[in-house]
């Protein structure tokens, strides 16, 4: 079989306007652009406080071509629940309601509302574009920040000491019908997951790794490359899980060394080779866990 060209797989229609206010090389913008292509125009977006509160444009602008509701930081899951209920009570069972939150709004302050929505199995899609810290406020650590990373609240002589929270497992434990990880480096994979999510009733969760040049301190042009390296190195495997039980890899993970990924980012500059080796070790151990999940569903 010849290599299918990506252009035949990504819809042409755009639901994001140029002139939005993302930083150059913003992974979160690629993520939104791709996701909306998968969802189409019959979509409403709930946007708790995050970088996208700015990217979407100040009043009276909107960079989205679908309805958008900006809301308070911790309310993504709840506001989306309310919108969906309102649509359904008036007989609209088709429109997709998507909450679009950063890692802060998902892993930290919004986790309760997300858990509530997931437990109630609200018919919404919850996307977390994960840039691994509070970037909009100027790079403070979140519970998504990986161990070893510099942020303005984990200075380089005392970098983040806790491992990144395993949000996917937390959501999967709610036995939602569909949860997945995705990366902006793999638009076809992301699109497929979005379409899958759209076709399923109940709570769908997509966790999208979205590198951030100013926050990760990498060159603007490396965004996609780093999002890819994270997958290739098995640091951020691309998986999907149905009903919290059936786990599946959606990509081959080459298992490339993690060192180039770490060294390409200024936020890890303080790490010694030994510390990088330790991270490699943790990835290797964690990979066994992933493999077992896929194999045995645990």
């Amino acid at each position: 079989m010849s290599q299918t060209m990506i252009k035949h797989e990504i819809p042409r229609k755009e639901f994001l306007s140029p002139g939005h206010l993302a930083c150059p090389g913003c992974g979160g913008s690629i993520a939104m652009r791709t996701v909306l292509k998968g969802l189409g125009e019959d979509t409403m977006v709930v946007l708790p406080a995050c970088c996208w509160s700015i990217i979407a444009g100040p009043w009276p602008q909107s960079s989205l071509k679908v309805p958008l509701y900006h809301t308070a930081f911790e309310t993504g899951g709840a506001v989306a629940s309310g919108i969906k209920a309102a649509l359904e009570v008036r007989g609209n069972h088709e429109t997709t309601v998507m909450a679009w939150a950063g890692d802060g709004g998902t892993f930290d302050i919004g986790l309760q509302a997300l858990s509530g929505a997931a437990e109630r199995n609200e018919d919404i899609i919850y996307c977390c574009y994960d840039n691994e810290a509070y970037m909009n406020t100027g790079v403070q650590r979140s519970s998504s920040t990986p161990a070893g990373a510099w942020t303005t609240t984990t200075p380089s002589d005392h970098p983040e000491s806790h491992p990144k929270k395993d949000i996917l497992s937390i959501i999967a434990a709610h036995r939602v019908p569909y949860a997945a990880t995705a990366s902006v480096a793999y638009p076809q994979d992301l699109l497929q997951k979005v379409r899958r999510a759209k076709s399923i009733r109940g709570t769908k969760f997509i966790h999208i790794l979205s590198p951030c040049p100013p926050g990760w301190k990498h060159p603007d042009e490396s965004t996609v490359d780093l999002a890819r390296q994270a997958v290739q190195s098995r640091l951020f495997p691309l998986v999907e899980v149905e009903n919290g039980q059936t786990w599946r890899f959606t990509m081959d993970h080459e298992g490339y060394p993690i060192a180039p990924y770490i060294k390409a980012q200024g936020r890890f500059r303080q790490l010694s080779n030994q510390q990088i080796e330790d991270i490699q070790q943790q990835i290797n151990e964690r990979w066994t866990v992933w493999e077992n999940r896929v194999k045995y569903g645990t």
Partner: peptide, 13 residues
């Protein structure tokens, strides 16, 4: 209310 009336296209980013 803060309801949008235009897109971001005019921004010369």
């Amino acid at each position: 209310v803060a309801s949008s009336t235009t897109s971001t296209v005019a921004n010369q980013t």
